[in-house]
Design a binder for these strands. Structure first.
Lengths: 244, 244
DNA sequence: CTTTTCTTGCTTGTATGCAAGATTTACATA
DNA sequence: TATGTAAATCTTGCATACAAGCAAGAAAAG
């Protein structure tokens, strides 16, 4: 079955493999994605890998550094804030435009929240990261608009990369409560409130990030040496990330 | 200056040339985009053209029909409704999240509305189509979130293709009034109202489309002959194009 | 005259080859 | 030991070659 899919559309396969790797928090930001390695890994030529990379680049998930290589994006602090702002806009708009919750939808979300709880109990951080993102994709799916689902999936992928970069400690319980509250409002049919809650929730998560520290990985050293902030040190910003 | 840009990044050049061709309503939906023709036109090999096409495909602007060719997308009636729904969600969310309008922003929108008026007076339909889309991109730009600007641009491109397919008569005056109302609300700082107005506006525009007629290009003939609607005639839809 | 089959040209799909920049390694030298 | 430099080895960028599918028209069969 998977062979079929592999045979049918190999470049889409590469693309989705990488995306799901990011969505499941198994691929770290800054990971080098060598065209040759991927080519041999998937049993194709560099051409198909390259095409997949092109697509992923327009989706904001990978980036090419000319003649140096492809890397999973490492969103800057500024980009991180942009992603969260976009999510607030889209998710609140999404919830606000919803008119009702089907029984099926109710079940889906309920099951999802149970999974979150289970992952929390198990202390499975990676799985939690994944689930926390999935919740929002589920909502987009309930809304039923495939364009918005796609957008939300890509934004969620970036969000996960952001959390891997900037999330010092994981306030999973807080996030989970946020999701529960949103769900309750939805279940009551109060989508205006759900929208407001989603904004609050995203604000909380964003505030929980350490957006000043990791924005400049030298800041620790810099502050220890009490040097001024150096705006021209962009070149060294990648040192620690690659060579998987 | 353009030579410089051409030399620097030729594939992005191809990509943006096509997008701006769509945004300015100079490229019709269903237009064939031959890799060879584009390659000679831009003086590059098929490789770069292909990479540009890959990017445009993930942006929802072109589509490949296997072994047949690349085409500018022809959104179905269903896809058209999806695009408008997505726009309602995003634009209303966008406006609702705005906190104020700078003097600069006020000027930009004011100038834009003047342009709309001028184009209406001149009866320049193509320019109007272009401006009507641009208005919404301007708002996203005012919001300042580059991610949302990108999303809005791609959705606007699709919207223009939709209007070329389904807009029998152009209610330009109505759209213009809608834009004016949104602007007034924004100028008054009433972004909640602006958001509501944007939803109304998009609803109006969508309602103005002929989403049933052109969904089946044979319907004219069919109704003239008073034949029943044929659900199995999907194959003959758009003689020259795809097979998805 | 209609239908079928075949052929030819055009399209994309994929792999490969080569050039050129970037990085690292090795090494000579102070 | 530290340092500067050159060579070797990576990387992507882009063009090209060839395979294979689709479509339309010609030729042949009915």
């Amino acid at each position: 079955m998977q062979d079929l899919h592999t045979e049918q559309n190999r470049q889409a396969n590469i693309e989705e493999t990488i995306v799901s790797g990011v969505l499941s928090a198994r691929i770290r930001p800054g990971t080098r994605l060598s065209e040759n390695q991927l080519a041999t890994l998937f049993g194709v030529s560099r051409t198909l890998v390259r095409e997949a990379m092109m697509r992923l680049e327009t989706r904001g998930i990978v980036q090419v550094s000319p003649r140096r290589g492809w890397f999973v994006v490492e969103p800057s602090a500024e980009e991180a804030m942009t992603v969260y702002a976009a999510r607030r806009v889209i998710e609140s708009g999404l919830l606000r435009s919803m008119r009702g919750l089907t029984d099926d939808g109710r079940k889906v979300l309920d099951a999802h929240l149970d999974e979150e709880k289970a992952a929390m109990a198990a202390g499975d951080r990676r799985r939690l990261t994944c689930l926390m993102g999935d919740f929002h994709i589920r909502i987009a799916e309930l809304h039923g608009n495939p364009i918005l689902v796609e957008i939300m999936r890509d934004l969620t992928a970036r969000t996960i990369l952001i959390s891997m970069l900037y999330q010092s400690e994981f306030h999973a319980a807080q996030s989970h409560r946020g999701h529960c509250r949103i769900f309750e409002a939805m279940a009551e049919g109060d989508f205006v409130r759900a929208a407001e809650l989603s904004i609050e929730h995203l604000d909380e998560v964003e505030t929980g990030l350490d957006l000043t520290a990791r924005a400049d990985p030298l800041s620790d050293l810099r502050t220890s040496l009490s040097l001024p902030a150096d705006t021209a040190s962009k070149t060294s910003r990648r040192s620690g990330a690659r060579k998987t």
